[in-house]
Design a protein around this nucleic acid. Structure first.
Length: 876
DNA sequence: TACGACACGC
DNA sequence: GACGTACGTGTCGTAC
């Protein structure tokens, strides 16, 4: 059956505008009404699956109703300009969806809707009307439902005849009579003064219509009421007329032309992106077949079988295509170069076996522009091809310009710069199990397009970096670091797999015992790893009190279990089972899975363009979260060993780097003094916060002080602090207050940085790394608070990240300078790990902390502790 | 295949 | 006064 959806455009846009905070996109255009409208539209499309659709708008200021009553809609607030400017966007949106829209001089949206609804219902179509205006209820019939917004924008009540009867006890036709009696202040329809909804309904239930009410005035009880009705007879009749929707609006086209569904989703996607509606984009079905078919502009490119000088100019954009996410020892699918001479696709072997190409690659003066320098260097490195002269990395630039962007993929970076003619990798290669390389001309074209995009993007991004004063951060920190990280990854870390296996077997045995004990105590066998089953056992079978709930059921997290431990013996065994299970699956089996058989090494990948703060992350395996806190887990570190006989592992970590950074940025005298004297900072904080002498600081006071310091560094809230200390939120808040009282300039810094962030839209680190925080002006308390904590925290954590990155560059240079064989292996946020030949041990043990401490000059000294051992475990 | 719960590090 | 609270990655179970 055909289903027509009619939307009251003005009404929904108004609703959305007032229901949502005044959002704007990155171009400063207000978008809250369009956003709400779009949300509603997507919901309607998804839930109603309409075959036909139309959105009606009010046209001009005057309509035929003004002839009846010149004061019609008088006294209305002017439409706020922030809303009016959004109407063209709403129209654009509808055009992108190819949804019919209509407005007619002299008529209101209601009249258009009424007209079309009647026509469609007459043809037995199903009709649904969406609006916020109760007037439309008069249209309700067997075929016509009216969806009225109630709360927010997407919550609606669907009025059919039954609901109308239930809510008002009158029929659809009587809605106009009701308006005639009670009026409508929003449309300035007078009605009868003194009669409101209650009285109007009572009268109508008794007499049926306005006319009948008026002709039966003498039967009405109440002197006042009689008088009023008598006096405002005319006005009541006129009001009824005004409220009556006119259903004969001239509409030339056929209903059939309102057909919905034939739209170009590319256009919709483009518009949603332009509006910054990324959350809606996710909901919108991308895999629309029409999208994939879209033809890109043609690109002239050459497939090269023999490399010549003209292909290898400087500068040139270079694509080395690898499909595997993990690029270590990965296949190269093809190579593309774009330069002033043109665009070239070079089959992998044709390039790698070319002497000319190899020479060009290692020529540091031949400038290469790439996408993901580290990936490119490492991939070629595994093929014994040295790549030097990397002059620009588009991915890195995009990341530095705005780390919050969800994608720094070449296609997305290009699109943001208005370059549309690059295909998504996923469209070319497919994904998951269906991933495959297309025939050569398709591949060649795709890679040539990417290279071409790179070539165009470089100057655009470079200019932006300069504008942001991030050129130095980019050229002197991140770019040199990416090459160093590439070397570290390629070097890899040796793993003692025998040791791991032995630990694994031991763990397996103990896990089995624990499992038995737990099943016995539960009285039934179940999967301990399943939070669902575990919850049922603990909270239903054993009757323990559920402390916390999750979306899906009872929470069984460690902090909950710890509280339950005294009540039942089983709980401690479960905690122990979890602990060992984690070690076994993640750290033993997980690590063994990614250890290369031939070399016994793991090659992690550091993601240098991901975190919002400037830290690195590590994957496959993640070597930044190897256990240390509990002895049991810490033993895993015994499996990380030097890759050569007689070498040692050296580990050096910064002591309190974030708090030192805080002392530097805030210039707080007490904090600076504490670090200059190299005091135990948590004890010092306890002394200051609790106003006691050093000797009087109890273990508990120090623990609290440590948690507060932790909170300052990680930007947690009073709630977070209360959780970590097991105290109330009030107490936590008062702790924080006392901290600020002790370190007034820290407080000052916190206030200033929020203010600065609000004004500029972003906060920065010492080396000009940026983080944009639009939510600092959010009206949503949560969002705003979170943004404020982020504003306070990011410059601290980010500057610490800047410092260790700088230390890594200096360290690599020092090792090179001194011709040392020592290799830098890992970075764990405030820590660097090396493998060192015995003969270099003494020198390196001094060099590493020296270099780390000199990496940057702050108002307080930096301090690094260093240690060595036969394994990572022993380097403590 | 996608997502939530959980747990590890800084 | 409510809101739902550091950032990452990996594993498992469970739903689709």
């Amino acid at each position: 059956m055909k289903k027509l959806i009619l939307i009251d455009g003005n009404s929904i846009a108004y609703r959305a505008f007032f229901a949502l905070p005044l959002l704007n996109n990155d171009k400063g255009v207000y978008t809250n009404a369009v956003y709400g409208f779009t949300t509603m539209l997507l919901k309607i499309i998804e839930e109603e699956k309409p075959t036909h659709m139309l959105v009606a708008f009010d046209a001009g200021k005057t309509t035929f109703r003004h002839q009846t009553y010149s004061e019609y809609k008088g006294g209305r607030q002017k439409t706020p300009p922030e809303l009016s400017e959004q109407f063209p966007l709403v129209r654009e949106l509808l055009d992108a969806f190819n949804i019919a829209r209509y407005e007619a001089d002299n008529y209101e949206a209601d009249d258009i809707i009424g007209t079309l609804a009647k026509q469609a219902a007459g043809k037995d179509w199903e009709v649904k009307i969406f609006s916020g205006d109760k007037d439309l209820l008069q249209l309700v019939s067997e075929r016509i439902t009216v969806a009225l917004t109630k709360k927010g924008i997407t919550q609606v009540d669907y009025y059919d005849q039954a609901l109308l009867d239930e809510k008002y006890g009158i029929t659809a036709e009587q809605i106009i009579d009701m308006k005639g009696l009670m009026g409508d202040s929003s449309d300035n329809i007078p009605g009868v003064p003194g009669i409101g909804e209650k009285t109007a309904l009572k009268l109508l239930k008794e007499f049926g219509t306005v006319e009948k009410v008026l002709s039966s005035i003498d039967q009405i009880s109440g002197k006042k009421m009689k008088e009023r009705l008598e006096e405002h007879k005319e006005q009541a009749l006129m009001s009824k007329e005004l409220a009556t929707i006119y259903t004969e609006v001239p509409y030339e086209k056929e209903l059939e032309e309102l057909r919905f569904g034939d739209y170009d989703s590319k256009q919709v996607v483009a518009l949603l992106k332009e509006l910054d509606f990324s959350s809606l984009l996710a909901k919108f079905d991308y895999d629309d077949p029409q999208e994939e078919e879209k033809e890109l502009a043609a690109l002239d490119y050459e497939t090269v079988s023999q490399i010549e000088e003209r292909h290898l100019t400087s500068p040139a954009a270079l694509i080395v295509e690898v499909l595997q996410e993990n690029y270590h020892q990965a296949e190269i699918e093809g190579i593309a170069i774009s330069n002033k001479e043109g665009h070239f696709f070079v089959p992998t072997e044709a390039a790698l076996q070319s002497e000319l190409f190899r020479k060009w690659a290692k020529d540091a003066t031949a400038k290469k522009w790439v996408f993901d320098a580290k990936r490119t260097v490492v991939v070629l490195g595994w093929r014994d091809l040295l790549l030097e002269g990397i002059d620009f990395d588009v991915q890195m630039a995009s990341y530095l310009l705005d780390p919050s962007l969800s994608s720094h993929e070449i296609t997305d970076v290009a699109r943001r710069k208005g370059i549309e003619d690059v295909q998504e990798d996923e469209l070319v290669y497919g994904k998951g199990a269906k991933l495959k390389v297309p025939e050569q001309d398709k591949l060649g074209l795709h890679l040539a397009r990417k290279a071409h995009a790179l070539y165009q993007l470089k100057p655009l991004l470079e200019e932006e970096l300069q504008k942001n004063e991030q050129e130095k951060l980019y050229r002197e920190l991140e770019m040199p670091l990416s090459v160093i990280l590439g070397h570290m990854e390629t070097t890899g870390v040796k793993v003692d797999t025998e040791q791991l296996k032995a630990m694994g077997e031991d763990l397996e045995g103990r896990l089995q015992e624990l499992e038995q004990t737990i099943h016995q105590l539960a009285g039934v066998a179940f999967n301990i790893n399943s939070p669902k089953q575990l919850g049922e056992i603990l909270f239903e079978k054993l009757g323990l009190p559920p402390i916390k709930k999750t979306k899906t059921g009872y929470s069984t997290s460690a902090d909950v279990l710890e509280k339950l431990a005294p009540q039942h013996e089983i709980v401690e065994h479960i905690l122990h089972y979890r602990q060992l299970g984690k070690l076994s699956s993640t750290y033993i089996e997980g690590l063994l899975k990614v250890t290369r058989k031939e070399t016994g090494k793991v090659h992690t990948r550091f993601n240098q363009a991901l975190t919002q703060t400037g830290r690195l992350s590590s994957t496959d395996p993640n070597l930044q979260n190897i256990p240390i806190r509990l002895e049991e887990g810490r033993k895993i570190r015994k499996a990380f060993v030097p890759s050569e006989q007689g070498w040692k592992i050296v580990a050096a970590d910064y002591s309190q780097i974030e708090l030192r950074v805080l002392a530097h940025i805030s210039k707080d005298d007490r904090l600076i003094e504490a670090f200059r004297k190299d005091m135990d900072i948590h004890t010092k904080t306890a002394m200051d916060v609790f106003h006691v002498e050093k000797e009087e600081v109890t273990a508990n006071m120090r623990r609290s002080a440590k948690a507060v310091n932790f909170g300052i560094v990680y930007g947690i809230s009073d709630y977070g602090l209360s959780q970590s200390l097991g105290i109330t939120r009030k107490e936590a808040a008062s702790f924080i207050e006392r901290y600020f009282a002790s370190y007034p300039k820290v407080k000052e810094y916190m206030d200033t940085i929020i203010e600065e962030g609000r004004e500029k839209g972003y906060v920065s680190t010492l080396l000009q790394r940026r983080r944009y925080l639009p939510d600092l002006t959010s009206r949503n308390f949560n969002k705003r608070s979170f943004a404020e904590r982020t504003a306070m925290n990011t410059p601290i954590q980010g500057t610490a990240a800047d410092i260790i990155k700088k230390a890594m560059i200096d360290m690599a240079a020092a090792l090179d300078d001194k011709k040392l064989k020592t290799r830098m292996l890992l970075q764990v946020h405030d820590e660097l790990i090396f493998e060192v030949p015995e003969a270099e041990l003494d020198e390196v043990m001094k060099l590493v902390p020296d270099v780390m401490e000199q990496a940057m000059e702050l108002a307080v000294p930096l301090k690094a502790d260093v240690s060595f051992g036969d394994t990572w475990y022993d380097a403590k």
